[in-house]
Simulated scan of single mutants.
Amino acid sequence: MKRTVFTLVLTCALGMGTLMAQSGVRQTQRSQANRITQGIATGELTRREACQLTKQQKRIQKTKRAAKADGVVTPGERAVLNRQQQQASRAIYRQKHDGQNRP
């Protein structure tokens, strides 16, 4: 009985960890999309910069779909996604603060 309960608890915990990691990726994507939209609205991003950043977000989304294709996002795949999102975040910051404004 103890073993069954332990197995059930462990399975739920692992499932929640995967769900939380996926929601973290989703939340970061949403946040970065909002930052790009805000940069366009304020004129901090030129059209070209916005297009480049949007394409980068689409590549991350494609990587995320590929990682989830087999039903399990491995720690290695999660690390790749996190690294891509960190690079995208830095790119958004640099483009918004590079002094170029949309005419």
Rank of each mutant, 00 (worst) to 15 (best):
V80Q: 11
A41S: 12
G24Y: 03
A67S: 10
I40E: 12
K64V: 08
A67G: 02
K62D: 03
Q57F: 00
Q57D: 00
S23Q: 14
A66S: 10
T42G: 02
K68R: 12
R65Q: 06
A33D: 15
V73L: 03
R59H: 11
Q29G: 00
C51G: 12
R83M: 10
A41I: 15
G71P: 03
L81G: 04
R48V: 11
M20R: 12
D70G: 00
A66K: 14
R47I: 09
R48I: 12
Q57C: 02
K58I: 13
S31K: 11
R30M: 15
R78E: 15
A50Q: 00
R59Q: 12
E77P: 04
D70E: 05
E77T: 00
R47K: 14
R59Y: 09
K64P: 03
G76M: 08
I36W: 01
K62G: 01
Q57Y: 02
G39M: 02
G43Q: 02
Q38K: 11
Q38P: 06
I60T: 09
P75E: 08
Q22C: 12
R35P: 07
R65I: 06
R65V: 06
A41N: 09
A79H: 01
Q61L: 11
V25Y: 05
L81H: 07
A21I: 03
E49D: 02
G39H: 01
L53K: 00
A33N: 15
E44F: 08
Q29H: 13
D70A: 06
R26Y: 12
R59E: 12
K55I: 06
Q27T: 14
I36K: 00
E49Q: 05
R26Q: 14
S23Y: 07
P75S: 09
Q52C: 03
K55V: 06
K55E: 13
T46E: 05
I40K: 13
T37H: 09
V73M: 10
A50V: 00
A67P: 02
A21N: 05
K62R: 13
Q27H: 10
A21P: 02
Q56P: 05
Q32H: 02
I36F: 02
L81W: 08
A41L: 14
I36E: 01
R26V: 05
A69I: 08
C51T: 14
R83K: 15
R59D: 13
R65H: 04
M20H: 13
T28N: 09
Q32G: 07
T42Q: 07
A79Y: 07
A21H: 05
N34M: 15
R30V: 15
I40H: 00
R30E: 14
Q38N: 10
V73C: 04
A50K: 05
R83H: 13
K68N: 07
K62P: 03
E77I: 06
T37P: 02
V72H: 13
A33M: 15
R83I: 04
G43F: 01
L45Y: 02
N34F: 08
A50T: 03
K55A: 15
Q56D: 05
K62Y: 09
V80R: 13
Q57G: 03
G43V: 06
L45K: 04
R26F: 13
R65C: 02
T37G: 06
G39D: 00
Q27S: 15
Q38F: 13
E77F: 08
Q84Y: 13
L81Y: 06
K58Y: 10
A41Q: 14
Q52H: 10
G76L: 10
T37C: 04
K64M: 04
C51Q: 13
I36D: 06
